[in-house]
Amino acid sequence: MLTKRIIPCLDIIKRRVTKGVKFKNNVDLGDPVQMAVGYSEGGCDELVMYDITASAEGRPIDIGMVQDIAKSIRIPFAVGGGIATLEDMSRVLLAGAEKISVNSLAVHNPDIIAQGSRAFGAQCIVLGMDPVSTENRRTCPSGYEVTTRGFREHTGMDAVEWAKQAEQLGIGEIVVNSVDADGTRTGFELKVTRLIAEAVRVPVVASGGAGCPEHLREAFNVAHADAAIVAGMLHTGEYSIRQLKDALNCYGIPMRMHW
């Protein structure tokens, strides 16, 4: 049976792991390579790293950072932040990552998804999406609107429609981030995650808001996510991956228990 994945997320600023609340007030949490190795040996199923200031600073992703992490772990590794072109994608893959996450730049240039998928295979290309709830049902019938640039810019695009379009373009997986939940540890945004999981055939990853094992259980059992991204609850040492997996295993959710 396919197990559900727990994916720690390293948000990187200046080669340090940071964590903010609702994408603000970031604090320093440690060395990325050390943390990546710790999580990998601690039983995480995959790892994701975001160079969170690359887009805003208009620079390419920190390839040295990608290389250093890729060299140190032997589990799937996804990378995002500042990826705008096929060359950017190629550099990240050659640095040893398996998956490339595109977000804001794909909204402005959807063709990058199709190009990346053709060049490297759909399994390499992950769509990160930042939906927010909206009252405007005319442009966003699902009740969720796609935002970009760390939730700062509204696009008027319906989140579920964008997910379906990205699937047609050749995305391999979709990460649904929630600003309303990010860093608050009050649980994932289950509704939009489920709407998207229902609408597409590719796996969906819940992200933003995880604070306790119960939140992960909801993401898997209620929202039907195939994987969940966690950050603060692990970074602060409040939970280990073993503790999360033990709890979820008790709930009857298939987990990889040996590593």
């Binding site: 049976m1 396919l2 197990t3 559900k4 994945r5 199923d45 759909a122 399994q123 391999g172 997986e173 999981a197 229902e198 055939r201 590719v202 796996p203 969906v204 039907h224 195939d226 994987a227 990889r256």
Partner: peptide, 11 residues
């Protein structure tokens, strides 16, 4: 329909 294609993950 909840079994997604591609299969991605540990089995």
């Amino acid at each position: 329909p909840w079994q997604k294609v591609p299969q991605i993950g540990w089995n």
